[in-house]
Simulated scan of single mutants.
Amino acid sequence: MAQGVRYSRRNSGKFGQALVTFFITSIMCLGLLSMLRNDSQRMDDAISVVQGQLETCEKECRDLEREAAAMMSPRAIHTYAARQLGMTQVHLAGAVRLDGVGRSGGTMSASLTNSGIRLPN
């Protein structure tokens, strides 16, 4: 009978060790899962922030493309040149008159008639 008690104590000791090992392992796994869950939530938050920034940049890009397309029209170019750059439109249409043709000195001058513009030699 003494052997039976000793055998049952040995088995209950092994069972107790296995049970303690199981609980320790379970607690460690739950801790790791909790850490992974926290990391996952932080990554989701970071992804959401980046997606928001991406949407903002895409909207800004579309606005700039729309603005660039509007600035390509001749009227917009003319308005920008006149207002921002101070350029004025000069009408050079007219006939060219050459003064001094056939002079012995070899100097000639040219001007656009009815424009007031004198062209260089």
Score class of each variant (00 low, 15 high):
residue 72 M to A: 14
residue 88 T to M: 05
residue 90 V to W: 02
residue 47 I to D: 04
residue 18 A to L: 09
residue 58 E to P: 01
residue 48 S to P: 01
residue 34 S to G: 15
residue 67 E to L: 15
residue 89 Q to I: 07
residue 28 M to W: 05
residue 73 S to W: 01
residue 55 E to H: 07
residue 98 L to P: 01
residue 39 D to P: 00
residue 87 M to W: 09
residue 38 N to V: 15
residue 21 T to A: 15
residue 20 V to R: 03
residue 66 R to K: 15
residue 92 L to P: 01
residue 26 S to A: 15
residue 63 D to V: 11
residue 19 L to D: 03
residue 75 R to L: 13
residue 86 G to P: 01
residue 28 M to I: 12
residue 41 Q to G: 10
residue 78 H to M: 12
residue 57 C to E: 07
residue 18 A to V: 11
residue 32 L to G: 04
residue 24 I to V: 14
residue 64 L to D: 03
residue 75 R to Q: 08
residue 27 I to E: 02
residue 60 E to D: 11
residue 21 T to M: 06
residue 34 S to W: 13
residue 45 D to K: 13
residue 63 D to H: 08
residue 28 M to Y: 05
residue 65 E to A: 14
residue 40 S to Y: 12
residue 54 L to A: 05
residue 17 Q to D: 09
residue 77 I to G: 03
residue 97 R to A: 11
residue 87 M to L: 15
residue 83 R to P: 01
residue 66 R to I: 14
residue 23 F to N: 02
residue 77 I to N: 01
residue 35 M to T: 13
residue 74 P to Q: 03
residue 80 Y to K: 09
residue 78 H to P: 00
residue 48 S to M: 06
residue 27 I to W: 07
residue 83 R to M: 08
residue 77 I to F: 04
residue 43 M to F: 14
residue 67 E to P: 00
residue 31 G to I: 09
residue 58 E to I: 08
residue 59 K to D: 08
residue 73 S to F: 12
residue 31 G to V: 06
residue 49 V to A: 11
residue 64 L to R: 06
residue 58 E to Y: 12
residue 26 S to V: 13
residue 94 G to P: 00
residue 62 R to G: 03
residue 87 M to P: 01
residue 82 A to G: 04
residue 48 S to A: 14
residue 46 A to I: 07
residue 70 A to Y: 02
residue 20 V to C: 06
residue 66 R to Y: 05
residue 69 A to K: 12
residue 41 Q to I: 14
residue 95 A to E: 09
residue 38 N to K: 14
residue 53 Q to C: 04
residue 95 A to D: 10
residue 44 D to I: 07
residue 79 T to A: 07
residue 85 L to Q: 08
residue 58 E to M: 13
residue 31 G to Q: 00
residue 19 L to P: 00
residue 48 S to T: 12
residue 63 D to G: 06
residue 35 M to S: 14
residue 91 H to E: 08
residue 56 T to Q: 09
residue 87 M to E: 03
residue 56 T to A: 10
residue 83 R to A: 10
residue 19 L to C: 06
residue 43 M to S: 13
residue 21 T to G: 05
residue 52 G to E: 00
residue 32 L to Y: 04
residue 68 A to P: 01
residue 71 M to R: 14
residue 82 A to V: 12
residue 93 A to W: 04
residue 17 Q to R: 15
residue 91 H to P: 01
residue 33 L to S: 11
residue 94 G to M: 00
residue 72 M to C: 13
residue 70 A to L: 10
residue 57 C to W: 09
residue 42 R to Q: 09
residue 64 L to P: 00
residue 68 A to E: 02
residue 72 M to R: 04
residue 56 T to L: 06
residue 75 R to E: 05
residue 27 I to K: 05
residue 80 Y to S: 13
residue 33 L to I: 13
residue 88 T to W: 03
residue 67 E to S: 15
residue 82 A to S: 12
residue 22 F to Q: 07
residue 76 A to W: 02
residue 18 A to T: 05
residue 93 A to K: 05
residue 92 L to V: 10
residue 22 F to L: 12
residue 22 F to V: 10
residue 92 L to I: 09
residue 65 E to G: 10
residue 48 S to Q: 09
residue 23 F to T: 02
residue 78 H to R: 12
residue 80 Y to D: 08
residue 91 H to D: 11
residue 43 M to W: 10
residue 73 S to Q: 03
residue 37 R to C: 10
residue 36 L to W: 04
residue 66 R to G: 14
residue 71 M to A: 15
residue 57 C to F: 13
residue 84 Q to V: 11
residue 55 E to T: 10
residue 63 D to K: 05
residue 30 L to V: 14
residue 44 D to A: 15
residue 26 S to Y: 12
residue 19 L to V: 11
residue 46 A to W: 05
